[in-house]
């Protein structure tokens, strides 16, 4: 029997997962649910890519302060993703611009891609989950 610390390396297949985030953070539960699923996939050492488009770009807006509305501010958790080796974060250019935002407004470093580049990235994935 192996010791628990010898189970460290997970032997299962690694697949390319893309999570597409299209909703604003607090109006619905989608953003938080997506983040939790991403953390689980990352804990199982899957190849994870995150996309923020449409209102999803608001999930990673800086300076969120939910004290007055009584719900948990989960935006700091996006900064933990690097420690989970989730480093492929993409934001759709058109979504950012139509909302008057720039990458300076975001809590994490991201790569900005346009519609067409995003379409190609999607074609490269094995599993795409949309929230």
């Amino acid at each position: 029997m192996s010791e628990p610390w010898e189970d460290d390396e997970l032997d299962g297949p690694v697949r390319k997962f893309m999570y597409v985030n299209r909703r604003a953070p607090y109006g619905t539960i989608y953003a938080l649910e997506s983040l939790e699923v991403v953390l689980i996939a990352a804990a199982f050492e899957q190849d994870v890519t995150l996309v923020f488009m449409d209102d999803g770009v608001y999930q990673i807006k800086k300076d969120q302060n939910t004290d007055a509305i009584g719900v948990k501010n989960f935006s700091p958790t996006y900064r933990a993703l690097e420690g989970y080796d989730v480093e492929k974060l993409y934001v759709e250019k058109e979504s950012l611009e139509s909302r008057g935002l720039t990458t300076d407004d975001l809590v994490v470093p991201v790569q900005v891609v346009n519609n067409d580049q995003l379409a190609e990235l999607m074609e490269e994935q094995e599993v795409i989950l949309s929230f």
Partner: peptide, 10 residues
């Protein structure tokens, strides 16, 4: 800092 408990690997 991050508002979550880390996974064991992390």
């Amino acid at each position: 800092e991050y508002q979550i408990a880390p996974a064991v690997r992390v």
